[in-house]
């Protein structure tokens, strides 16, 4: 989930590294947090070109509050339906996490109805966790629905993807972990998201997964991320783009991998941080089969071309962007 940007945050970059992803050519990436519903087909093509083979789209706040239960149903349904199909057309395997986000937990009347709706979605194929849930303002209502969803995750045996607040981040992060432990959740089932230098140590020490969002201006920059990777190593650490309707970058994962490589981090460590750790964490749902994206097949392709991977990398026709002719 993003926040509103203030212009003060938008410091111009002093030194621009030329964008060159050649050094990570052939590497595969998994972006475990990206809101594709808010992105374009150009993004999908660029992501596939940069080596992203699979992603997780957490259910989130759409930028303005929903006013009725049907909007939630249609949104969840699009995460397992249309968006999944759209992604498959570019050769990217699409998973999602389903949950009631913290902001909208504050509309209690609606939140009650959403809680009734969730069981209809969390058992569906490719739903790899409950998420993104947690705290925003840290209100009593947020606390209530966070706890209810922890119980739901426990019952369904699903991992939990936790959004940590922008404001009062350190305490909000600690509180999220305390409550999870209180509910008897195993820390290895919990991915704490949007970490920074201030929160990561405690998250790792307590046995949780630590995810970092590489997001311009408001969250982590990737130079800071490289330093953290050097300091903490690759164990239980993963990065994501959390790209959404704000100024964000769906190529944050491959770009950061390239920067890590430039700064001398080993290929094995890069692979753990940008690919395998996310799979290990979310595959605890029983809903991720790595074979699905090692030899990518779109939904249509499995039917039509039965095992033939000639169309590797997606079947959508490309437009020639270097030409002014549109045919």
């Amino acid at each position: 989930m993003c926040c509103s940007h203030s212009f003060d945050d938008r410091k111009p970059q002093v030194v621009a590294e030329a964008m060159n992803l050649d050094i990570i050519k052939g590497m595969k990436f998994f972006d475990p947090h990206v809101h594709m519903s808010s992105r374009t087909t150009d993004d999908y093509q660029a992501m596939a070109d940069a080596g992203i083979v699979a992603l997780i789209e957490p259910a989130f706040w759409l930028g303005q509050p929903r006013t009725g239960i049907d909007s939630f149903r249609d949104y969840y349904s699009s995460l397992v339906g249309w968006e999944r199909f759209r992604s498959s057309q570019f050769g990217i395997k699409h998973y999602c996490t389903i949950g009631l986000n913290s902001r909208e937990a504050n509309n209690e009347r609606l939140a009650e109805e959403v809680m009734e709706l969730l069981p209809l979605f969390i058992y569906k194929e490719g739903v790899v966790g409950i998420g993104e849930i947690g705290f925003d303002d840290q209100t009593a209502a947020e606390d209530k629905y966070y706890r209810m969803q922890l119980e739901l995750a426990k019952e369904a045996g699903l991992p939990i993807q936790i959004h940590t607040p922008h404001r009062d981040k350190k305490k909000g992060t600690q509180r999220s972990m305390d409550i999870a432990i209180e509910h008897g959740i195993d820390p290895k089932m919990v991915i704490i998201d949007h970490n920074n230098e201030e929160t990561v140590k405690e998250v790792l020490d307590r046995g949780f997964w630590a995810a970092f969002t590489i997001y311009p201006f408001t969250k982590m920059g990737n130079e800071r991320m490289v330093e953290l990777a050097k300091l903490y190593g690759p164990e239980r650490i993963m990065i994501n783009s959390a790209a959404d309707w704000g100024i964000s970058d769906p190529l944050a994962v491959p770009k950061t991998a390239a920067l890590m490589k430039l700064k001398g981090i080993s290929d094995e460590d890069i692979k753990m941080i940008t690919y395998s750790n996310a799979i290990t964490a979310f595959a605890q749902s029983g809903q991720i089969d790595e074979n699905d994206f090692i030899t990518p097949l779109s939904v249509d392709q499995t039917e039509k071309f039965a095992g033939n991977t000639v169309l590797r990398g997606g079947q959508q026709p490309r437009t020639d962007k270097s030409s002014i002719i549109i045919s």
Partner: peptide
């Protein structure tokens, strides 16, 4: 039908 993903549809 209303809540279905692709394989369910």
């Amino acid at each position: 039908f209303l809540a279905a993903e692709v394989n369910e549809l």
